[in-house]
Structure formats: structure tokens, C-alpha cells
């Protein structure tokens, strides 16, 4: 197994005054190139903290993140993030939001015309080219998230980080967008790491599902391989025994062995 992205013994301790909270304990994970990996766990287990550490937005207390055998500890376009609440800049148009990242990443390697074409290419990938001159408040939640994905893809990241990308969407839009992400993964072969708390979403999209125990001191409880052939079809999987078994396995982990304890 060739390690592309490697999380090496990551601990994270938050200190507020005299009080310290250990959020993550000894997280080890290896992700291969082109894999789609989901991290699932109850809310408050430190999934988002883990994603922020990989993105470089927060630093691990001990341990580190290796991308292609090089340590990364500050944010950068090689680990582009699709944020939960889209985080588009409201004063820029759809096009300008994507262009912002493209202009920085390809400042030296692409001409102006090439960057323009590259922005439009990525908007086409997520079927948002028609809204290029709209502002974020003029498009729907699902469309905003599409633009967020286009912005991340346009930076040509080595790893695409998705932070509960479909969490704020209604069920129908979510399904539609999941299919889009699957198609993009199929087409572009990106390495994707997704945070989620939706079991169906995790099984449908992932090659591997990383299940986290409850915090404090959350660790990786179990890693499940999902041996389903791609391309996957939502409707066919509904009766597929492998799919149902995987789903069952994740549900058991989350609701039997590591049940969420309110305000523990």
C-alpha cells in the first residue's frame, strides 16, 4: 500500500487557561492516491478538528501530516477544502469566487486567458457555468455548494477535503450533489477525504470508512473497506447485500458500541 496522505500519531489537546481537553488521541491513517475516504462519528468527536489539522488550519499538538512523504503544517491549495457552509465570498460573483483561488495557484504557470478558461472548465464540471455572473445570495444552497466544490477543484489539490459538504442541504439536493461528486471522482480520480455523519452517504461514496469513537480523546475505532464496484448506482445499491452489510456494520459501531452520550 503506497501512502499518499499519512496521518502520523496525531494528538490534539486544547488548552483554555488551566483546563486542558484532549480531543484527538493517537490518530494514524494512511490514504492511497485516488481513494475516497470518509470519516464518520458523532458530533463533537473531533472530526472537524482532524480535518482542520490536515488542512493546516489548526496544528496538531503532537504528530504530523505527511503528503507525498513531506510534512505539511500550514494551509495551502494542495489540500483544498470544501467548507460545510460553502464559505463563498458574498461580494464576489460565482466566477470571481473560483477565479480568486485560480489566480493565486496558477499565477506563474497559466496566462490570463488560460486561467479564465480553467475557471469556466471547472464551473462546467459542476454545471454552474450558467450562473457565472450571479452573486452567492442569488443562487440556491445546493448551487453554492457546487461552486464551493468548483473553487476547490480549480486549485488542482492533491487531496480534496470535504467538511460535511452536504450537511446543510435538503435530502433531494443532497442526493443529487452526492451523485455529482461521485461522477467527478470517477472522472478526475482525486484523492478525497470527507467528514460526514450520514451513514448512507459514507457507504455510498467511500472506498474506506473511518469510524471514530466518542470524545474526549477520540480515536479511530474501526476502518471499514467498502468493496463495491464503481460506478455505483444509488437505486441498485438499495438492495445490494454488500452495501447493506457495510451499512449495518457502521450503524452497529455508531449506535451500539459507541452510542452518543449527551453532555457526558
Amino acid at each position: 500500500m503506497t501512502a499518499y496522505l499519512k496521518l502520523d500519531h496525531i494528538d490534539k489537546i486544547f488548552t483554555r487557561g488551566a483546563a486542558t481537553t484532549e480531543v484527538l488521541k493517537d490518530i494514524n491513517l494512511t490514504i492511497e492516491k485516488g481513494q475516497y475516504v470518509s470519516i464518520i462519528g458523532h458530533s463533537g468527536c473531533g472530526k472537524s478538528t482532524l480535518l482542520n489539522i490536515i488542512a493546516g488550519l489548526t496544528t496538531a499538538t503532537t504528530g504530523g501530516v505527511l503528503l507525498e512523504n513531506r510534512e505539511v503544517n500550514s494551509p495551502g491549495p494542495d489540500r483544498a477544502v470544501v467548507f460545510q457552509n460553502h464559505s463563498l465570498l458574498p461580494w464576489l460573483t460565482v466566477y470571481e469566487n473560483v477565479r480568486l483561488g485560480v489566480d493565486k495557484v496558477f499565477a506563474k504557470t497559466k496566462t490570463k486567458a488560460e486561467r479564465d478558461a480553467w475557471v469556466m472548465h471547472n464551473l462546467n464540471l459542476v454545471q454552474m457555468a450558467h450562473a457565472r455572473d450571479k452573486r452567492p445570495n442569488e443562487i440556491s444552497g445546493g448551487m453554492k455548494q457546487r461552486v464551493g466544490i468548483a473553487r476547490a477543484l480549480a486549485m488542482e489539490p492533491k487531496v480534496l477535503l470535504l467538511d460535511e459538504p452536504f450537511g446543510a442541504l435538503d435530502a433531494l439536493t443532497r442526493a443529487h450533489l452526492q451523485d455529482s461528486v461521485m461522477a467527478l471522482h470517477q472522472k478526475l480520480g482525486n484523492t478525497i477525504l470527507m467528514i460526514t455523519h450520514d451513514v448512507d452517504e459514507a457507504v455510498l461514496l467511500s472506498d474506506r470508512i473511518v469510524m471514530m469513537t466518542n470524545g474526549p480523546s477520540a480515536r479511530i475505532g474501526e476502518v471499514l473497506e467498502v468493496p463495491l464496484a464503481r460506478p455505483r448506482k444509488r437505486l441498485e445499491l438499495a438492495t445490494n447485500t454488500t452495501y447493506l452489510k457495510c451499512r449495518q456494520r457502521v450503524l452497529e459501531f455508531l449506535y451500539e458500541r459507541h452510542r452518543f452520550v449527551e453532555a457526558a
Partner: peptide
């Protein structure tokens, strides 16, 4: 969120100020 976006895109301080 906006600060995170700026960090991922790696805007320099001047660009962060104006953009």
C-alpha cells in the same frame, strides 16, 4: 470562514486586506 478561505488560497497580507 473567510479567513480560512484566504488561508487555503494563500493570500498574502496585502491581498487579504484588499480582497
Amino acid at each position: 470562514d473567510y479567513r480560512n478561505v484566504a488561508a487555503v488560497v494563500q493570500l498574502n497580507p496585502l491581498e487579504f486586506f484588499s480582497k
